[in-house]
Computed example of a mutant assay.
Amino acid sequence: MKSVSEFADSRAATDALLAILREGHLSPPAVARFLGRAAHRSLRQAANRPRALVELTVLHGLLLVLAAGRRPGRLWVATSWALAAAHLGLLERRERLTAADTLTLIRANLPALPCGASRWSGPLAITLDLADGPLARRHGTASPFGDYADTFADAAYWTWLALRHEPSRTVRAAAVAAWALPVVTVTGIALRRGAMPERPRPTLLRPAAAMQGIVALRHLIRR
């Protein structure tokens, strides 16, 4: 197996890391090697992009101030920072965050912010979601970082909103199926194949797109 350092491309590096788990049959030593090499690569990639790391830290510092005294609050924001900092290598040739990346990260942290529980948080999340993709494409700044951050922002925010504020068990179950289940499924496929699968396309045809409108509307008219 080729070493991770032989791959310049972020996807190839991720596939190389996943191959460690596949070839080791998810044994404890394989998991330990995977975590060690992943952590080493994350630290190296973050160090190679100091401007992006500073921008990421400043943004999450501001979010921490807004999240003070709330639940899940600061723990949610700190987790967001750690996950984003660990994946700065997905920026590939870029050395800084873009406006689209910032909108995506703000959307991911809505549950920790004062506006997160308001009845307008659903429409706000949809607006941010509709804005970040075209913004990235218009300025030619799309990257795997933004792509995967968008997926996990959706899964985090909408699953939280449904489980925290949706009274219908049916809608809650549908929300988990629409957002959490795809993440678990893709992760399972990646572990089995030892390589990252392609995301479902186009986005608007996925069940999650319709569920956003349903959950947001129910939350808006219920309060």
Rank of each mutant, 00 (worst) to 15 (best):
A125F: 01
W81Q: 10
I106M: 08
E95C: 10
P123G: 04
E92L: 09
L91T: 08
D101H: 15
T102K: 05
S118W: 06
A112K: 00
A85S: 15
N109K: 01
R96D: 03
A85D: 06
I106L: 14
L91N: 05
I126R: 01
T127Q: 13
L97V: 11
L83F: 06
I126F: 13
A112Y: 07
A117G: 10
L90W: 13
T104V: 10
D101A: 07
L88A: 05
N109R: 03
H87M: 11
A125K: 00
R96A: 10
W76M: 03
R94W: 12
H87L: 15
C115Y: 03
S118E: 11
A85G: 09
P114C: 10
L88H: 04
R94Y: 13
L103W: 03
R94H: 14
T104Q: 01
G122Y: 06
A82W: 08
T102C: 09
A78F: 09
A84N: 12
P114G: 10
D101K: 05
T102R: 15
A86W: 02
N109F: 00
L83V: 13
S121P: 05
S80V: 03
G116T: 08
A99R: 08
L113S: 05
P114A: 09
W120H: 12
A85V: 13
L75M: 13
L113C: 10
A117V: 03
N109L: 05
R119C: 11
W76L: 10
L90Q: 15
R93F: 00
A78P: 01
L88V: 11
P111I: 04
L75C: 12
A112N: 02
C115K: 13
G89L: 09
W81I: 07
A82D: 10
L90K: 11
R107M: 09
A78H: 11
I126N: 02
G116E: 07
A117W: 01
A125C: 06
T102G: 03
T102S: 07
T98W: 03
P114F: 13
S121Q: 01
R93P: 02
A125T: 01
R94T: 03
A78W: 12
L105P: 05
